[in-house]
Amino acid sequence: MTARLLRACSVFLSRGILLLALFLTFTFAAAADVAVPQLTGRVVDQTGTLSSGAIASLDQKLRDFEAKKGSQIAVLIVPTTQPETIEQYSIRVADAWKIGRKKVDDGAILLIAKNDRHLRIEVGYGLEGALTDVNSRRIIDEVITPKFRTGDFAGGISDGVDRMIRAIDGEPLPAPARSTNFSSDLNDFGPVIPFALFASLFVGGILRTMLGRLLGSVATGGVLAALAWFMVGSAGIALAVGVIAFILAFIADLFPMATGPGTGSSRGGSWSSGSGGGWSSGSSSSDSGSFSGGGGSFGGGGASGSW
Rank of each mutant, 00 (worst) to 15 (best):
A3F: 06
F12H: 07
L22D: 03
F28L: 06
A35M: 10
A35D: 14
L39W: 02
V44N: 08
I55E: 14
K61Q: 15
D64P: 05
E66Y: 12
K68E: 15
K69L: 08
I73G: 08
V75S: 13
V78D: 02
V78R: 01
T80I: 03
I86Q: 01
Q88I: 05
R92I: 06
V93L: 06
V93S: 03
W97T: 05
I99T: 11
D106N: 15
K114I: 08
E122Y: 00
G126M: 05
D133W: 00
S136D: 04
E142S: 14
E142P: 02
V143M: 06
F148A: 10
F153E: 00
A154K: 03
G155N: 09
G156R: 07
G160K: 09
D162S: 15
D162C: 05
R163N: 14
M164N: 13
R166Y: 06
I168A: 10
D169N: 14
E171Q: 14
E171I: 01
L173F: 04
P174E: 04
A175K: 15
R178Y: 10
T180W: 10
N181A: 14
G190M: 12
I193L: 15
L197Q: 04
S200P: 01
G205P: 01
R208Y: 02
T209Q: 09
M210P: 00
R213A: 09
G222S: 01
G222H: 01
A228Y: 02
W229I: 03
M231G: 06
G236W: 03
V241D: 07
A245W: 00
I247K: 07
A252Y: 00
T259E: 14
G260Q: 13
P261N: 08
R267D: 00
G278L: 12
W279N: 10
S281V: 11
S281A: 15
S297Q: 14
S297K: 14
G299L: 11
A303Q: 03
S306A: 14
